[in-house]
Structures are given as C-alpha cells and as structure tokens.
Simulated scan of single mutants.
Amino acid sequence: MSEVMEAPSKAIDLKGRISIYQPEQDGLIFPQLPTFESHAQHRQYLKERLVAACRAFALQGFDYGFAGHLTVRDPEHPGLYWTNPMAVHFSQVKVSNLICADHEGNVVEGDYAINRAGFVLHAAVHEMHQDIVAMCHAHTVYGTAFASLGKKLDPISQDAAAFFEDHVMIGEEAGQVAVEVKAGHKVAHAFKGVKAAIHQNHGLLTASRHSIESAAFWFIALERCCQQQLMIESTGIKPRFVTEERARYSREHVGSEYIGWLHFQTIWDQLVKTQPDMFD
C-alpha cells in the first residue's frame, strides 16, 4: 500500500438524498425505490427481480451445470426464502418455477427440489443475519480461480475500491463441497457487516441487506474485479494501489447497497424488453 499521506476527503452534503448520483433537479427520469401496498405486491416484485437476477447470471455466463443459487427473503414470512429451482438453467428460471423454502431446507411452495448446497449456505446466512435479505453464489471462472489464491482483492481500481474493507476471505471448509449444515454456519459467521466473501478454493458469495438487485450486481462486479486482478498479476508488474483514504471514499460513493440496486436497473430494463417470458 502506498505510504503517501493525504488529507481526509471532505464529506459531501447529499441534501437529503441517498446518493450523490440522485439528481437534485426535479422532473428528470431516474429510477426510484419502490413502495408496496401489500405483502403480496411486495412478494411478486421480489420474485420478478430474483428471476431477473438469474437471467442476468445467464447473460454473464455464470452457469455451471446445476451449481449456483440465488435467494431472497420473503417479505411477510422472514423465516422463508425464495430461490431458483434445482437443475434448471439460469436462462430458464421464471416466476412460475421459483420455489420457497424454510431454513431447514423444506420446500413449502413450488414443484422443484432445492439445491442442497444452496440450502446449507444460504439458509445459514439468512438465519444468522436477519438483516440480510438476499444472497448470490455461482461457480464462475475468474472468481473460482482467484479464490484459489486464498486472499482478498487489492484496491487496484475504482471498481475494486467498492469492495475495500467490505469483503472477507473465508479459509474454512476450503474446497470441500458445502453439503453439511456445519459448513453453512462457518460461512455465515463471516458475513457480519460485509457484502461479499471469497471462499477459498470454492468461489464468490455476495449478500445484501437492501435488495436482490444489489446482491446480484455486486456479484457481477466482484467477478469482474477478480478477472481484472488476475490479468494484472499475470503481467508480473506490481500495480499502483488506490490509497486507503481514496478507496474508502470511492467505496462510500460507488460501493453502497443503493448503488448496487441502481446499477441493476439497467440490466432489469434490458431483460424486460428482451426476455418477457421470465414473467410466465
């Protein structure tokens, strides 16, 4: 890390806004956080966004057989969560084939089986951290490769700074398939106060206290950051890191849960226009 000293960045007056990216000028088209009149309306919204997250993973090429699971907590019954069906390709997930399960892995709604590894990991995280509403995991090329290094990301870019001091490296159960409940508990303990984890010899996981959209986008972003760092390390040239102060500043403004949600709106709009069957 650079030893250069710098003055702390001044806080920005957001004037009541969640993010500096929200326009101060009235009347402009800009994504708005939703409000709901009923649990049923909220549930339908979450299910549609969960499907969109699965379709987004398909577009990114994150599929690997039946591996990969995305979850979102039910808005009315917090002990239940919705997830993609076992052995269905991300591109074929739709509202009608989602399943709802409890923290014991019992399917309470839906026709498909649950992914055992998904239940072990996600149910443990959802149960231990009641504030976490969504979680994502997939067996990706670059994330899995980077996970073999057993270390966290370096602040090599503004993109990587979004994860600065906001992700962990988990060494426990490294490389052993998570089909036993104790493995899920070890992963769950690591998710205290962070949005992402690199599980050694396994891959990437993200969790959100905000939305499934945020969890999905930060997973996509984390995979890209792993790819970028692997590319840089392959040159043998040591990169110049973003300083700690600047990395924290960037994380505050481009690494928040809200920003993850906002980024995903571009993906959502594309999917609505090109994949209407996801609402079936």
Rank of each mutant, 00 (worst) to 15 (best):
S2H: 02
S2F: 00
A7M: 12
P8T: 11
K10T: 03
K10V: 12
A11T: 04
I12L: 13
Q22Y: 02
G27A: 08
F30T: 08
Q32M: 11
P34N: 07
E37D: 13
S38V: 09
A40W: 02
H42S: 08
L46N: 03
K47R: 15
V51K: 07
C54I: 02
F66N: 05
R73Q: 05
E76D: 13
Y81N: 04
A87N: 11
V95E: 10
I99Y: 06
C100V: 07
V108P: 00
D111F: 00
F119M: 04
V120I: 15
H122N: 09
A123H: 01
H126L: 08
H129M: 12
I132Y: 01
A134P: 04
T140D: 05
S148M: 13
G171D: 13
G171E: 12
A174F: 05
A178G: 14
E180Q: 13
V181D: 13
V187H: 12
V187A: 15
F191G: 01
K192N: 15
V194S: 06
A196E: 09
H202N: 08
L204Y: 09
A207G: 12
E213H: 09
W218M: 04
W218L: 02
I220N: 10
E223M: 04
E223T: 06
C226S: 10
C226Y: 07
G236D: 08
I237S: 06
F241P: 02
V242L: 11
T243F: 03
A247M: 11
R251P: 08
G255W: 03
H263R: 15
P276T: 06
D277M: 04
